[in-house]
Every structure is written in structure tokens, then in C-alpha cells.
Design a protein around this nucleic acid. Structure first.
Length: 952
RNA sequence: GCUCGAGUGGCGGAAUUGGUAGACGCGCUGGAUUCAAAAUCCAGUUUCUUCGGAAGUGUGGGUUCGAUUCCCACCUCGAGUACCA
């Protein structure tokens, strides 16, 4: 019997599906009496794209699957679900091009994904599958949105609270005492004023406090995509998807008040087991800086300019101020003489795109406004400049310039010949600014002179607060997240408008289903695609969607036309898996309190400042409002590295239809052209006929081959992608080598977290290993039987060596799994199987535990062997083998014996000897005497079990 | 610029409370088996070598009997981030 992996794998995949082997039990469900401790392993769910899976996609799923199966063997009640992040741009763009409904495309893509995933033999509990685009799912996304709308953030209590409580506070004491997260432009009011407000005015005020709010904000508008983007969706000034330019534009948008959670999001990073680099990304993104807000009065004017500085201690070094060109006060304070220059500068910098501004950080530009501010302490005039090195979006959009202490201010001062005052003791500022902090003594600074940095910092804030010119302040870079998208294929907002004020649809009428539209493009008037729907009005009497023609602004109102962004559904999906079919609530209290949160989360690091931050935010919010009892969604997080493709290139001689083999390129001017990797053999030789067929434009091309007649391609490691023709499909690997080989090989490629290129050639090593494993359980054919091997496991006890091989392997593999070093455990299995075959081991005592041990990695072959071993239950129910120390202890060990640290010979010594006995034995040895030639050694170092070193 | 990570054979990569560097796999070389091939099995494979050995984990120093591992300086590569006041 040979190792027929195709047959075996199909058989067991069917078995798992039929028997629901990996269905996780919630407490209270039938058969849940004897559940082990809960353990939740989650993968970042995929967006089902049209291209299907390539071998890079399952890498993380395989790792999590190994861990989940391992935990199952260890007796845990494992939750290991999978689903789809099925709202998204590509399906919509496909719809725009073809008119095909995104729901249909998505459905087809999911089907294809599922087929591919099933072939790899994952232990997913598919009964809990979620899809973010299902109304039964997005009903709860809409529900959470409503909860956010009905909440505000109380800085005093450090948590979100119901908006009704804020109304009570307002009506009792106005805004006098409450410390709430709110818009920048709020004005305080007294209880009397509040109570006198019309209900519309009250709504308007409350909107400034809600955790999701409607506001006209400057947003990142992407004209090509026809939508706004969140900051994390922009990479290098262009859209992450498509790479289109992004411009700033003012629009009325829904926003999420994530900034209220900045401090908690930052602090709680210390509680979770994520990689340091990922936490660091989030810290940078949150961008906390501690300093002071200082107000500068403008001379001869009623205006004031607040600035934020992390170095208020350098206030006596201020020699000018700089405002962002977009700053709202610029036009108001500019003197008539400077007007023209300033206007020219504003126009010029507005024309420069964000991208140019970033690319061109070296050149210094600016203009003088002609106005002067008053120094808060010296009352000296401070000239006010504008310059685009100051960003409108950060802090107050204005800085107090301290050229002696800040390089940018320094460069600006030098360029425009502005004065530079030195306020640091013993600092040389003739070439560049001095940025030292700790231990720096401030001089030339009135009441701060002679103080060290820290003392000066405290003192100046105290003084500022005393004379009312400023106060200590912490600034965060984290902006509120824009939550509206001008797209079709997303969750509709459960919102309608009465007199321009947003109203929530009562949660009991959810879901608000996505309407049908004729076209998926924006309307002619520039409204989002939902504006094309004729059925998009809300009847508040009958609580249902009705045609637009019925809008009367009395009982029937227009619905919100925007949809939610991609991260809405993915911010809470981990909780839905706990209780996926609940129609009463997004997750029942019992289910959530049982599973708590994700124990192990595996996915790519590209979500560092998007999904991973937003889901932390929503989790904290839902906890505050009493819907969850955990503060963080993901306890431990591992980022799997990308599997890269190895692209192949042919080289076309420029301007000619001639293709040069790689080693003949030399100094010729050539144009590299991607060749499909399926046309290349293991020694980089191109199948020329195949290539001609694939790219007919080269059917008459001349292929210049090398001396041996081969046309060799060039190789380069790139991201695996269809457009680079370097995609390897896991289906093909499963077909040719089996899923177990694919699983083990993906792990064997290298450390999980590292990016690594795929190389199909190396897969035979792992495949051979599985064949050898198979052979261990099968007797060699005796000549009389005519060759067919048959299953054979002896009931005799195993040899001592075999027991040692097994237990060594159990120990190492278990440690490897716990450390997520899956690559080395594959090596360990290989060594084990090599040793056992050398020992002719065929004893059940060894082969039975070995089958369980390997089951997480190669589940199909393990199931087959387990069945042959006589078990009727799945191997997944078997207990994980435990190693016994007694098989691992050695009685003797080879000690390296070194002289002055240089190894001379090895000596076999009993491990039971004491240090002194070892020393005596070694010194008595003839070889030792040769080396020390009669002299007494100065020192003898014995490390038990390891080394003997003699210093002569 | 800043932050984080990494530099080990022809290649992917093992080994870190400091203790025989190069496990395991690929590739390559030789052999067995075969009419032949595939498959399988065995042996070898860091470099140099006068066959005794010697050198060797990016470079240069340091600590140590002993350093891939710890410390200092530098170089290179990768990832992230960026006029953040």
C-alpha cells in the first residue's frame, strides 16, 4: 500500500465535515458537560477576492490550525472559526465595470475560497461562519453604530457613558463641571441656557459630544475612487488601494471619536502580548506628546494665537512665530503691505499637493505677515510668519519658533535671516540647533535662568497657568476616524434626516438592508451611489423603507446615502463567532463571558494602525457600555510574514524582437519581461514553445540561448501577484503532493514571522518525509508476497533507542509549538522518522503516540494511520503525548576537554560523577598529561554535562 | 532623519541562562538498484591545507579559559514612519 495522499485527504475532509469534528461547543449546548477550558484561536478573516488563494494566503491559517489542533489534543475546548470580510472595493469596482451585483461576485468568490480552504484540511468550525455583508451580520454593525451615537466620553470617569446621562448633567449644571470629549468648537453653557434651548438646538449641541458624530471636516478625498479615505488607508500620500492621488476637501461626514480613547489605547498596550514593533507602530500612530498650550496675543488686535509646544521651557528663546499657510487667522492679521506676498505664498502652497510637500522637505519657504505677537512674559514683539513646514492638521497649526532649540525653526531663521537667541548653557548653536533635554541648563531666560530642563518645564507651566497665558497639555496625533464612504458595497447607516439633523432608526427595525441600485457609480449630482436608489426613504410611522417619491419631511424622510468603511464589520467580528446565530443580541453575555476574547490572533502586520486599532477602540467602547467584559480584543498577536513569489524574467533586446538568455545580457540594453513561472523548470530554463504560445506577440521572436542550448531566465523575489506571473496555486500543490505536504512545507520554509520566498523545488524533502513516515507503519514486502507493502505495527515493546527518539521528539515539538517555531519542529519530525527507520522500529508503543504528535501538522495522514491502528474515533480526540524524562536521561556524555580554551580531545564521562571526580579522571588521563607536561594546572573549570577546561 | 528587526555554506535556514557552529531540507558529487528511466537507498558536501592541521557566523575593538550568543563603534540590508512643534 502506497501513500495515496489524494485519496486519504479527500476521505478525511469528508469525514470531518460529516462528523462536525471541529464544532466548538458553547456551555449549555448539548454534550457540553465535560468541556475543557476555553481557548480561542483566530485568523484575520480574508477578503474574498476574485483571484482566489495563492500559497502565501494560507500560511497564517496553517500556523493557527496547528496551534488550534494542538490545544484540542491538550484537552482545551477550542474555538477556531473562519469567515469573510466580504464588503469591499474590488467587488464594487467589478460591479461598475460589468454591472454584476457585488453580492453575486462576492458569493462566487467565497465559494471558490471555501473550496480552496477545504482542500488544505483546516479545523475551522464552519458552523460559526460570519460574512460582514450578510444582513444578519451587519444588523449588529448598525446596532453598534447606534450605541456609539447614543454615547459620550467622560474623561473624569475615563469611560463612555449613555448620552441621556449627559443630558441630565447639562440640565442640572450645564457644561460647568463635566469633562467630556467633544468637538473643538463647543461653547459652554449654563443649566439655564441648556434648559431654554429648543429641542433642535439641544440635538445640535449633543452631536458635538456623541462618540459618532456628523461634522464638516477636512477629509482625504480620492477623486479616482470617488470616496474619502481614513488616514491609515493612505500610503505615501496616495490611496492604499489603487495608488491614486488624495486631496484635502471639506465634507460633512460621520466621524468616530476615537481620540477620546487615545490614552487608554496607549496605556493598555502594556497589557497585551503583541510584538514590540507592532505596539510601537500603534504608539507612534497615537503620537502622545506632553507639553503646554501657550497663547500669544497679537499686537493691536483682538486675536490670539494658541500654540502647542513640548518645550515650553524654551519660551525665552522664541524669536518669531510660524503659522501654517491654511491657518484661519492668517488673512485676518496680515498687514496691507504684506498682503500680496502672503496671498501669493498661500496660493503657491495650496497648489502643492500633500505629496510634493512631503517629497520636498528640504527647501525652505515662507512669508512674513507683517503682524507681531506679544511674548507672554517679556511682552516683546514677536514677528509672525507663515511657512508650510507647519502643518495645519497637527496641534493648533501654529508654532512658537525657538531657532536655538529646533532644527526646523533654525533652518527657517537662517534662511530668512531672523534672529537666533541662545538660551542653553554651554551649547554651540553656530552650525545647528541644540536639541538636548535631560541635564540641559537654561540661561538667558528671566525666571527660568539656571534651572535644569525638568525644573524649568514645571516652573514655566506653573507661571503660564498663573498669568492665564497657557496651561499644561497633552497632545495626541491620533485624529478622529472618518466613518463615511461614498460607496455602494458597505453597511448602510441606520440614519435618516429630519431638518438636517440625523436620527437613528430604532434598533428593533434593523437590519436596514442595502437597497438595489441601477448603477454603482455616484449620481450625476455627485451623491454617493445610494443616491441612485429609488427606494431609499424612511417611513417613521410604519418603520420601513419606502420609495423616495413619498418623502414628505413630516413622517417620511430621506435616508443617509453614505455607507460604512471596510473596518466597521471587522472591528467586532471576533465576538460574533462566539454566538453567531443569536438574533437577540450581537453576542450573548454567557457566550462572551465564557470565551472572553481572542487568546491567539494571527494575521498580517499591515493592519497595525487600522483594523487592530479600531477593534481595540470598539471593544473598549462596548465594555464601557456593559456589553462586554474584556478591555482588549486580542490577547496575543502574531504577524505572519509574507510569502513572496520568485518572478522569472526574459530579456528583450531594446527595439528588437530578440530575447537574450540571462547570462548573455551583459551590457546590452534590454527590457526585462515577466515570464510565467509555470513555464520555468527547476534549473531556470524557459520552455520556449510554451512561452510563445502564452505570449503570441513573441511567436516569431528570436531566442538567443546559451552554449548548452538552454534559455535561462533571470530571477527576482517580488510580492506574489497575478500581474507578476509568479503566483503558485495551493490547489496544484495539493494535487501533486497533498495538503499535508503543503502544510508542512509552508511551515518548513522559515520562521513564521519572516517574509520568505516560495520555492516549489524544495517541497520534495517534506514530501519524502511523509512517505517515510507512511513506510514506518507498513511492513517491507517479502519477496513471496510480490511487492505490495501492507499495514504492520508490532505489539512488541519498542527498543530503548526508539523510545528515546520518540520522547526527544515529543519534548522538542511541544516546545516548538508553544514558541511558534513551527519550522524547526518539522525538522525534528524528520530526524525522528529517520532514526526510527534506521532502528527498524515498528512498535505500537512508539508509532501510536507519533501519529498523535504529528496530527496538528499533517492531519490527514495522521487520521489514516490512527484508523489503521484500530481507533474508531478521530485522532483529534486523542490526548497529546507527554514525554517522560526517564527516556531522555543519558548515563554518559562526551565532554570536550580544552586547554586554555582550545579544545584538544573529547572524553566519555559518566553524568553521575561529581565535579571533583570528573576533574580527577580528566587529570589522570594520558592525553591530559601530554598537554600539561608535568606542570600543575592553574585552574580547572568543569561545567557538568558540558565541558572541562584546563588552564595551564 | 527617527523607530524596530536582521546580517551564519551554492540556497532556505538550525544552534543564544556564553560551552563540539553549520542541525534539517534543497541543490550538487559519487555509488547501489534498474535493460533504461522515474522512484528509492547509501556516502560525501563551510573554506584553505604540506592531510599534521588552520581559519571561519557583516567589519573593527572589548569582556571571558571559551563569544553566532554579552558590551562598544561602524557598515549593509529589510520593515514601518515622517517637517508632529
Amino acid at each position: 500500500m502506497n501513500y495515496n495522499f489524494n485519496e486519504i485527504e479527500a476521505k478525511w475532509q469528508k469525514y470531518w465535515a460529516k462528523n462536525q469534528t471541529f464544532k466548538a461547543q458553547n456551555p449549555g449546548s448539548p454534550n457540553s458537560e465535560s468541556l475543557g477550558a476555553p481557548y480561542y484561536v483566530l485568523d484575520m478573516f480574508p477578503y474574498p477576492s476574485g483571484a482566489g488563494l495563492h500559497v502565501g494566503h494560507p500560511l497564517g491559517y496553517i500556523a493557527s490550525d496547528i496551534y488550534a489542533r494542538y490545544k484540542g489534543h491538550k484537552g482545551f475546548n477550542v474555538l477556531h472559526p473562519q469567515g469573510y470580510d466580504s464588503f469591499g472595493l474590488p467587488a464594487e469596482q467589478y460591479a461598475i465595470q460589468t454591472g454584476q451585483h457585488p453580492a453575486l461576485t462576492t458569493e462566487n468568490n467565497i465559494k471558490r475560497y471555501r473550496e480552496q480552504l477545504d482542500k488544505i484540511g483546516f479545523s475551522f468550525d464552519w458552523s460559526r461562519e460570519v460574512r460582514t455583508s450578510n444582513p444578519e451580520y451587519y444588523k449588529w454593525t448598525q446596532w453598534i453604530f447606534i450605541q456609539l451615537f447614543e454615547s459620550w466620553y467622560d474623561y473624569d470617569q475615563g469611560k463612555s457613558r449613555a448620552i441621556s446621562e449627559l443630558e441630565e448633567i447639562f440640565s442640572a449644571e450645564g457644561t460647568t463641571r463635566v469633562k467630556a470629549a467633544c468637538d473643538d468648537d463647543v461653547e459652554g453653557f449654563s443649566a439655564e441656557e441648556w434648559n431654554a434651548f429648543s429641542s433642535e438646538e439641544k440635538q445640535k449641541q449633543l452631536l458635538k459630544y456623541r462618540l459618532t458624530y456628523l461634522a464638516e471636516t477636512e477629509v482625504n478625498w480620492c477623486p479616482q475612487l470617488g470616496t474619502v479615505l481614513a488616514n491609515d488607508e493612505i500610503v505615501n500620500g496616495v490611496s492604499e488601494r489603487g495608488g491614486y492621488p488624495v486631496v484635502r476637501k471639506k465634507m460633512t461626514q460621520w466621524s468616530m471619536r476615537i481620540s477620546a480613547f487615545a490614552e487608554r489605547l496607549l496605556q493598555d498596550l502594556d497589557q497585551i502580548d503583541w510584538t514590540e514593533s507592532l505596539k510601537e507602530s500603534q504608539r507612534n500612530w497615537i503620537g502622545k506628546s506632553v507639553g503646554a498650550q501657550i497663547t500669544f496675543k497679537i499686537q493691536n488686535s483682538e486675536f490670539e494665537i494658541p500654540v502647542f509646544s513640548t518645550r515650553p521651557d524654551t519660551i525665552f528663546g522664541v524669536t518669531f512665530m510660524t503659522l501654517a499657510p491654511e491657518h484661519e487667522l492668517v488673512r485676518k492679521i496680515t498687514t496691507p503691505e504684506q498682503k500680496e506676498e502672503v496671498e501669493t505664498y498661500i496660493a503657491a502652497s495650496a497648489k502643492r499637493s500633500e505629496r510634493e510637500r512631503m517629497a520636498d522637505v528640504k527647501s525652505i519657504s515662507g512669508a512674513f505677515t507683517g503682524a507681531y505677537a506679544e511674548h507672554p512674559f517679556t511682552k516683546e514683539p514677536v514677528p509672525i510668519w507663515i511657512g508650510d513646514y507647519v502643518l495645519a492638521g497637527y496641534g493648533t497649526g501654529a508654532v512658537m519658533a525657538v531657532p536655538c532649540g529646533d532644527q526646523r525653526d533654525y533652518d527657517f531663521a537662517k534662511h530668512f535671516d531672523l534672529p537666533i537667541t541662545n538660551i542653553f548653557e554651554n551649547a554651540d548653536i553656530s552650525e545647528e540647533a541644540f536639541s538636548g533635554k535631560e541635564g540641559t541648563v537654561i540661561v538667558n531666560s528671566d525666571f527660568l535662568s539656571g534651572l535644569e530642563y525638568k525644573e524649568a518645564l514645571q516652573k514655566v507651566i506653573l507661571e503660564l497657568e498663573k498669568n492665564g497665558n497657557g496651561y499644561g497639555k497633552t497632545n495626541y496625533r491620533l485624529r478622529d476616524a472618518v466613518f463615511s464612504r461614498q460607496r455602494y458595497w458597505g453597511e448602510p447607516f441606520p440614519v435618516y434626516y429630519v431638518n438636517g439633523m440625523p436620527q437613528m432608526i430604532d434598533a428593533k427595525y434593523l437590519p436596514l438592508r442595502l437597497p438595489e441600485v441601477e448603477k454603482y457609480l455616484p449620481t450625476e449630482t455627485g451623491e454617493p451611489p445610494l443616491g441612485n436608489s429609488t427606494d431609499w426613504a424612511w417611513d417613521t410611522e410604519n418603520n420601513k423603507v419606502v420609495p423616495n417619491t413619498q418623502i414628505d419631511e413630516e413622517t417620511i424622510f430621506r435616508l443617509e446615502l453614505n455607507t460604512m468603511p471596510g473596518w466597521a464589520g471587522s472591528s467586532w467580528y471576533l465576538f460574533r463567532y462566539m454566538d453567531p446565530h443569536n438574533e437577540e443580541t450581537f453576542v450573548s453575555k454567557e457566550a462572551q463571558e465564557y470565551w472572553k476574547n481572542v487568546d491567539l490572533y494571527i494575521g498580517g502586520s499591515e493592519h497595525a494602525t487600522g483594523h487592530l486599532l479600531y477593534s481595540r477602540f470598539w471593544t473598549k467602547f462596548l465594555k464601557d457600555r456593559g456589553y462586554l467584559n474584556v478591555e482588549e480584543p486580542f490577547k496575543k498577536l502574531i504577524n505572519q510574514g509574507m510569502i513572496l513569489g520568485t518572478s522569472a524574467f526574459v530579456y528583450r533586446l531594446e527595439g528588437e524582437n530578440v530575447l537574450l538568455s540571462k547570462n548573455l545580457v551583459g551590457n546590452n540594453k534590454v527590457q526585462p519581461i515577466h515570464a510565467d513561472v509555470s513555464l520555468i523548470n527547476a534549473s531556470d530554463e524557459l520552455d520556449i514553445e510554451g512561452f510563445k504560445k502564452w505570449r503570441p506577440e513573441f511567436k516569431d521572436a528570436k531566442f538567443v540561448t546559451e552554449e548548452d542550448g538552454m534559455y535561462k531566465v533571470g530571477r527576482e523575489v517580488e510580492k506574489m501577484s497575478k500581474s507578476k506571473y509568479n503566483v503558485v496555486n495551493p490547489d496544484d500543490i495539493c494535487e501533486n503532493y497533498g495538503a499535508d505536504t503543503l502544510r508542512m512545507y509552508e511551515m518548513f520554509l522559515g520562521p513564521l514571522e519572516q517574509a520568505k520566498p516560495w520555492n516549489t523545488a524544495g517541497i520534495t524533502g517534506v514530501h519524502n518525509f511523509l512517505k517515510k513516515l507512511w513506510k514506518l507503519y507498513h511492513s517491507s514486502p517479502s519477496p513471496s508476497e510480490g511487492g505490495e507493502k501492507s499495514f504492520f505495527v508490532s505489539e512488541e515493546p519498542a527498543s530503548k533507542d526508539s523510545m528515546k527518539s520518540l520522547h526527544k521528539t515529543i519534548k522538542k515539538v511541544t516546545e516548538d509549538i508553544e514558541n511558534f517555531s513551527f519550522n524547526t519542529s518539522v525538522s525534528t519530525f524528520m530526524i525522528c522518522v529517520n532514526e526510527l527507520s534506521a532502528q527498524n522500529c515498528n512498535s505500537r508503543e512508539v508509532l501510536e503516540p507519533l501519529a498523535v504528535l504529528i496530527a496538528p501538522y499533517a492531519p490527514h495522514i495522521a487520521e489514516e494511520l490512527w484508523e489503521k491502528l484500530g481507533h474508531s474515533e478521530s485522532v483529534a480526540t486523542a490526548a497529546y503525548p507527554v514525554y517522560e524524562e526517564k527516556y531522555l536521561v543519558e548515563s554518559t556524555k562526551n565532554y570536550p576537554v580544552s586547554f586554555n580554551g582550545k579544545m584538544r580531545f573529547t572524553m566519555e564521562l559518566s553524568l553521575e560523577l561529581t565535579k571533583d571526580e570528573i576533574e580527577k579522571t580528566v587529570l589522570a588521563d594520558e592525553r591530559t598529561k601530554d598537554h600539561i607536561s608535568g606542570k600543575a594546572p592553574k585552574k580547572v573549570i568543569v561545567v557538568p554535562g558540558k565541558i572541562v577546561n584546563i588552564v595551564i
